[in-house]
């Protein structure tokens, strides 16, 4: 596993206690191991649980919520075992990946019922507030069977938020959301986390996690492949080859000079005339490239990393 947990992370995460602890947790179904010996801690802020479909994210999240039992290991939330501990759900909000709702029930009635089941005191105000947060007041009195996929997700989120939980666990919450809803949703989560709450967000879409999460947990084949700040994970992968695109006024001359550098593994010139350099030592390349260009009399117009997104890190980890 690549551990970047010691690397600097966003905000005050390092100074706060973990609210969720996952210790050597495994889960198997017959002979199939879904989650294998995973350990991590989650502190207030937004944590992204990232991995491809079938990686074990949902199983892991279900064990954290207590919906599923562990085969081995221990999960604690606020220091208590979450399994068979209903009282904890007054402090936790969970939105599962399944979008099914009570079709016959009006959106407002659903949110109200969920609030009442969680013992919310000033229920009508709490319901209005939660529905306003997801911007669905206009559709609150319509049966949820008439909602679009995105509307159902938002009303489910309102039902998850109605008791203002300290921990919010969301499994693929942006499924079905259009771009405007995504932005609204992201802003909502960011403001929620800024109140000192804990948000755990599972997704296989790297962009979502990259834009939101302070901390990332990368799950691959049921194992924790990496954890910590996204950029720290990226830096920790020191054996990973990086692609850098170089645009210059004499690409072939510069390419033949670059190939001699020790920091360069391979050089290609793409059909548009840009040089794509493969390097395992970008730091040296950054120093050597301007020097080389000057010595060769080549003008470099632009240098850009091709794979600095979470997508590329993720792809690398999955392939490894």
């Amino acid at each position: 596993m690549t551990n970047a947990s010691d690397a600097p992370t966003n905000g005050a995460l390092g100074s706060q206690d973990a609210v969720i602890k996952v210790e050597n947790v495994s889960r198997w179904f017959g002979n199939v191991v879904s989650v294998s010996d995973v350990s991590f801690e989650i502190k207030p802020g937004i944590t992204g649980l990232l991995g491809p479909n079938g990686a074990g994210k949902t199983t892991l999240l279900r064990m954290i919520t207590g919906l599923a039992d562990v085969s081995d290991g221990k999960v604690t939330v606020f220091g208590e075992s979450v399994r068979n501990n209903p009282a904890l759900y007054a402090r936790i909000g969970v939105m599962s990946e399944h979008e099914t709702v009570y079709q016959f029930m009006k959106g407002r009635d659903f949110v109200k019922m969920m609030g009442q089941l969680r013992g919310v005191k000033d229920i009508d105000n709490a319901v209005d507030k939660a529905i306003n947060l997801v911007d669905l007041s206009d559709a609150a009195y319509r049966p949820m069977g008439t909602y679009s996929r995105g509307m159902r997700q938002r009303m489910r989120l309102a039902a998850t938020l109605v008791h203002e939980p300290e921990i919010l666990l969301l499994d693929e919450p942006l499924n079905g959301a259009d771009p405007r809803q995504r932005v609204h949703f992201q802003n909502l989560l960011l403001s929620y986390a800024s109140l000192g709450k804990t948000v755990v967000l599972s997704s296989h879409i790297l962009e979502e996690v990259e834009q939101l999460a302070d901390t990332v947990l990368l799950i691959v084949n049921g194992k924790l492949a990496a954890s910590g700040d996204f950029h720290a994970i990226r830096a920790a992968l020191d054996d990973r080859p990086y692609h850098v695109r170089v645009i210059s006024d004499a690409p072939r001359d510069l390419a033949s000079a670059l190939v001699k550098l020790e920091s360069v593994d391979a050089v290609n010139v793409d059909p548009e005339g840009a040089i794509v350099v493969l390097s395992r030592n970008v730091r040296d390349l950054q120093i050597e490239l301007p020097r080389l260009a000057k010595a060769s009399g080549v003008r470099v117009r632009r240098v850009e990393p091709l794979d600095d997104s979470l997508e590329s890190v993720f792809g690398y980890l999955v392939d490894r």
Binding site: P86, I92, V94, H98, V101, Y102, L117, R118, G119
Partner: peptide, 15 residues
């Protein structure tokens, strides 16, 4: 089958 049971079990009420 509808996967709505979690709505009820994820609440702080005894089973």
């Amino acid at each position: 089958e509808d996967r709505t049971l979690a709505n009820l079990t994820l609440t702080p009420i005894p089973r």
